[in-house]
């Protein structure tokens, strides 16, 4: 009897733990919704920041985030996929390969703010890009790269060995087998990984603070020159102010950011389902 009771208590604790966590998520969403929905109108979406919360808008921040996500995707796609291919398909057991792999997994654990420091030294100062959107996007690309590489490697690992064998048996060289048979089969997984890491990049704040994305921006950003802002930075600015009105428009901006990330996640899901429809091994 005691044994049964202990089991029941434990089971209840497990359920409680999960409920508690999900409840916190629910509260968070409800709180942001209740605060932010009121301000979420076309004027807010198309307006520019203002010292008066009632007139403030987030158009420059939305554009900044979109540009940023785009640049990050364009930069990380070729490099991340190429690196993933090298690590997964070439010289797998060599010392060099093991070193590179360990390095990637350690990079994935470096705090994002450290990337900000590195981006400041490399892109802003050494390469003289200044505190621009481009410098910020390149910094985030470095941050996202390990994620894209790992997603690529996982997608490649999921392609059955029989596909590679089939290509080799037809007289394909290693690259021909990868390009013609392995990559097309891994494409859904890779694309999903890229879209998800775009979402991650769009939600990042800390590194961009070091790259100077805090200016009060009232115009559409130019990637290579002048100040820029992005949604999380805008949220941070507003959330740092004591007035309740600013907290409310911060909540509205959060809703926009979450909607953007949700859209990207939905796109990733769609890509995965759609593209892998015919991939039943």
């Amino acid at each position: 009897m005691r044994r049964r009771l202990a089991g029941t208590v434990f089971y209840a604790a497990c359920i409680a733990a999960i409920s508690l966590t999900l409840l916190a998520l629910l509260l968070l969403l409800l709180d942001v919704l209740s605060r932010g929905l009121g301000h979420l109108d076309p004027d807010f979406l198309s307006g520019v920041p203002s010292r008066r919360p009632a007139r403030a808008g987030i158009m420059p921040a939305i554009l900044g985030s979109l540009y940023l996500g785009l640049i990050v995707a364009v930069v990380t796609f070729p490099i991340g996929v190429a690196a993933g291919i090298f690590l997964e398909e070439y010289t797998k057991d060599s010392f060099l390969n093991r070193l590179l792999r360990t390095n990637i997994s350690n990079l994935a654990g470096v705090p994002s703010i450290i990337y900000g420091i590195f981006g400041l030294a490399l892109f802003v100062r050494a390469l003289n890009l200044g505190e621009t959107l481009l410098a910020g996007a390149l910094t985030l690309s470095l941050l996202i790269l390990p994620v894209v590489i790992i997603a690529t490697m996982e997608a490649l690992r999921a392609v059955p060995a029989s596909q590679r064998e089939a290509a080799h048996a037809l007289g394909a060289t290693r690259w021909q087998a990868i390009k013609g048979a392995v990559l097309p089969a891994a494409a859904p997984g890779i694309l999903t990984g890229i879209v998800l890491s775009m979402a991650r990049a769009i939600g990042e704040t800390a590194p961009l603070i070091l790259i100077g994305a805090v200016t009060f921006v009232t115009y559409a950003p130019n990637p290579v020159e002048g100040g820029y802002t992005v949604l999380p930075i805008q949220i941070f600015q507003w959330a740092s102010r004591p007035q309740a009105e600013f907290q409310e428009i911060a909540a509205s901006a959060i809703l926009v950011l979450l909607a953007l990330m949700f859209a990207l996640n939905a796109l990733a899901l769609f890509l995965r389902v759609r593209l892998s429809r015919h991939l039943q091994w």
Binding site: L27, L28, D31, V32, A199, R200, G203, E204, T205, A206, P232, I235, F236, A239, Q247, A250, A251, I254, L257, L258, M261, N265
Partner: peptide, 11 residues
């Protein structure tokens, strides 16, 4: 885990 941490700070 996917929620931007700035949002958690706001919360």
């Amino acid at each position: 885990a996917g929620i931007p941490t700035i949002v958690l700070g706001f919360f």
